[in-house]
Design a binder for these strands. Structure first.
Length: 771
DNA sequence: CAGTGAGCGAGCTTCCGCTTGACTT
């Protein structure tokens, strides 16, 4: 048996390392933490020096007992968890649970999985650093105190099952504040002037260039006057300037930048990116995907050089070492890169191939030379005004890393492509072809996407690579935030066009405010946020994590006792909790909109047990208020009195059809018609307040027709089995379960036996998968 | 899939960071 037991955090890592270490070493994985605070009774004994109560969670018991078995047969145990605060704590928990002693234990660390790194780690063992372990303990206890005191407070003051925490609550705050910034944004407009000029080149050919006025004009009158003057002016190139620019590649991927780029370039959600990356990692295609480091191993650097030299020539290679600027980065791993940089492509599912490709390009580009760009600016004078037009063009002199990779930003789609200018000379006389002044509205800020929220959190040092994706899920699961496509609106803009000295005015429709897959806070998210920021200002402060991190660092370096730090925090925090518990009322985010002119009752909106609602009048002895849920697209903060009053107009009877009444109402699944005990959803363009009986009957008829097509075939021998037409084509429905019909079968010709075979086969496949 | 919004009370919810599978269409 092996004399040496090595324990790492990740099973995929264990496999690779075992190969490097060879005989005499057994490498096992702890699958992350093996102990955690107990969930019942708080898990922290506050009165007894905040003593943590650790237990082995149910799903870790098997792993622990296995490790114990291996430990029995080993002479030495090597604790090789990551070199960061959590890793040090894992090492300590292992030594506690496995009953290790200093004599039979070695603590080793490595930041990259290469033979050299691992061998030198084995040659340089150390002891567990108990200061770092205490820093982790402080982190863990603080998070428990905050989370398990604030959440119950929300259950009492707002509604059950809500949650609050050092990370998630601040993430929601970011979204709420962005939303309010957008809500309060006052848009204004100005006029942007652009021109098309022409001249004859030496060959006598007419050449056009596009130019823009360097300032914006404040209103329509000014724009009109300006264009009129332009009609009388002559133009010439007053100055021609060229400037060399250099552009450098972005560093290799970390978790956060991978999530951002996969979102922008591949349209992946944060969770999707992580699950695809996990599979690539397990298959040995990429290095570890939860990292905050931009560092590459020297092995990777050498391979990158070799591949770039071969593929593009050595002038495309530039050795680069990147430094992380991220707050609180712990850099226990490498950057995310392909394990073998010589593999440009891989096989497998499409999503994995695409993500791998992105990682390969980004890694390679990070070791490539700068792009050299020449930017030309032509200044065009106007004879009768001091203003100037400028035309700019860019020429890539040397593409460098751009050959492989360019970083996009969320705003890129708006700015358009860079133009190339024709050969120009100073003093050239130009003719205008057309000069245009178009109205431009100022834009409110963009909302956060999943990935841009992660970026912001990383900047603030909130959360860790392993928690970004779960945190984004949590705030959505709690109902604080929804991911939405926002359609935007349309508005008219004024456009002035001047040709041959004549100014023509017209209106053009413009779409604005359209955003895809953005995070929008809900009413409950806002109410919880306002409650927390009012009563727990310091925890909701964007710098809170950074501040406590400083103290954790002090603990780690041995300059502060963890209990002292926690006690200082808790004494103040606890009084706030107690005070809020006693003094503050139940919070509903109530907003009074005004008086209903018909009944004279007050109209208000608030968050209720089942979500946001509008209420007509307050409870009195002789009066019971009416209630109506807000529609999906309505918010407590923005709904108007008229819109709220409209909600009370439903349910509404709109006529009879086949001797049964038709009633229009809105449910949590949207507007519908109820007729003869059946429900018919309205289409998007139908307004439940104005829909008439003809349209309603049409909807009912369409639905009936669809339903009649739904059944393809039934069998009198077995009524439980049906061949149906669904959203994705024909399928078999049997005993409440659905089965796919093989591609080559014609669903109309299937016999009962055929169907039963298909069912049996698909069940077989499933059980095979399980094995 | 589709009406909720009185009040009581039992029992439950909840944090952040490390790791993977366990599920479903």
């Amino acid at each position: 048996m092996g004399e040496n037991l090595v324990i790492v955090e990740s099973p995929a890592k264990a496999k690779t390392i075992e190969k490097f270490l060879g005989k005499g070493f057994i490498v096992k994985s702890s699958f992350g933490h093996i102990r955690d605070l107990a969930k019942k009774d708080f898990g922290v004994d506050i009165k007894n020096q905040y003593k943590p109560i650790y237990i082995v969670p149910e799903d870790k018991k098997k792993i622990v007992s296995e490790l114990k078995k291996f430990k029995k047969n080993a002479k030495l145990v090597w604790l090789a968890s990551d070199e960061d605060r959590e890793g040090e704590a894992i090492a300590w928990h292992l030594s506690e649970v496995l009953g290790l002693t200093e004599e039979n234990t070695r603590r080793i660390v490595f930041h990259e999985i290469t033979k050299n790194a691992i061998q030198s780690a084995v040659e340089n063992p150390r002891k567990i650093n108990y200061n770092v372990v205490q820093a982790q303990q402080a982190r863990r206890v603080l998070d428990r105190l905050v989370g398990f005191q604030l959440s119950p407070l929300l259950w009492k003051k707002i509604k059950p099952s809500l949650s609050a925490g050092r990370v998630q609550s601040v993430a929601v705050r970011l979204l709420v504040e962005k939303e309010r910034e957008i809500l309060n944004f006052k848009t204004s407009s100005s006029y942007k002037v652009s021109a098309i000029f022409s001249f004859l080149d030496p060959d006598g050919k007419q050449v056009e260039i596009q130019a823009e006025l360097s300032r914006k004009l404040k209103d329509l009158d000014e724009a009109r006057d300006f264009l009129t003057q332009c009609g009388l002016a002559s133009y010439e190139i007053a100055r021609l300037a060229t400037k060399s620019l250099k552009r450098s590649p972005a560093p290799p991927f970390t978790t956060s930048t991978l999530q951002q780029e996969a979102g922008r370039k591949l349209g992946f959600s944060v969770a999707q990116t992580m699950s695809v990356a996990q599979k690539l990692y397990e298959a040995g295609k990429i290095t570890y995907m939860r990292t905050d480091s931009v560092n590459l191993s020297s092995l990777a650097l050498n391979t990158a050089k070799k591949v770039i030299d071969e593929e593009f020539g050595n002038k495309y290679h530039q050795f680069r070492k990147y430094q992380t600027k991220t707050k609180g980065a712990q850099e226990a791993h490498e950057a995310i890169r392909p394990t073998y940089l010589e593999n440009k492509d891989i096989d497998g599912p499409a999503a994995g191939v695409k993500l791998y490709n992105l990682i390969w390009k980004r890694t390679m580009a990070s070791q490539m030379s700068n792009a050299e760009i020449e930017k030309t600016t032509a200044t065009i004078s106007i004879s009768n005004m001091p203003d100037v037009f400028t035309a700019t063009g860019e020429v890539i002199k040397f593409d460098g890393f751009l050959k492989l990779y360019s970083v996009t930003t969320d705003e890129d789609s708006v700015s358009g492509s860079k133009t190339i200018l024709p050969p120009l000379r100073e003093g050239e006389k130009l003719h205008y072809e057309m000069i245009t002044a178009s109205e431009k509205f100022t834009q409110p800020p963009y909302r956060y996407s999943e990935a841009s929220l992660v970026k912001k959190m990383e900047e603030l040092g909130i959360g860790r690579p392993s928690t970004y994706a779960p945190t984004i899920s949590t705030i959505q699961n709690r109902g604080y935030v929804v991911k939405e496509h926002l359609d935007g609106n349309e508005r008219d803009i004024v456009v002035l066009e001047m040709t041959d000295g004549k100014v023509k005015e017209s209106k053009k429709a413009e779409k604005y405010g359209r955003e895809r897959s953005k995070l929008v806070p809900t009413d409950i998210g806002m109410v919880v946020n306002d409650f927390l920021t009012e009563h727990f200002k310091s925890i909701m402060d964007y710098n809170f994590t950074a501040l406590v991190e400083k103290e954790f660092d002090e603990i780690a370096s041995g300059n502060l006792e963890w209990v002292k730090m926690i006690d200082r925090f808790y004494s103040d925090f606890n009084t706030r909790v107690e005070k809020t518990l006693k003094e503050s009322e139940k919070t509903t985010g109530e907003r009074v909109l005004g008086i209903d002119p018909a009944s004279g009752e007050e109209v208000l909106v608030k968050v209720g047990r089942y979500g946001p609602l509008a209420q007509l009048g307050k409870v009195r002895e002789d009066y019971k208020p009416r209630f109506a849920s807000l529609r999906k697209d309505q918010r407590i903060e923005t709904i108007s009195l008229e819109e709220a009053l409209d909600l009370f107009k439903l349910p509404r009877e709109i006529g009879n059809f086949e001797n049964n009444s038709m009633i229009v109402a809105i449910s949590k699944y949207g507007p519908y018609i109820r007729h003869d005990g059946k429900f018919y959803s309205l289409e998007k363009q139908d307004d439940p307040l104005s829909i008439n009986s003809e349209r309603a009957i049409e909807i009912i008829r369409i639905k009936r027709e669809q339903d009649s097509k739904k059944v393809i075939k039934t069998f009198s021998e077995n009524e439980n089995l049906k061949i149906l037409n669904g959203r994705w084509g024909p399928y078999i429905s049997y005993e409440k379960k659905n089965y796919k019909i093989p591609k080559n079968d014609n669903p109309e010709e299937l016999s009962l036996e055929n169907c039963l075979t298909i069912i049996a086969n698909s069940k077989k496949k499933k059980s095979a998968k399980k094995k």
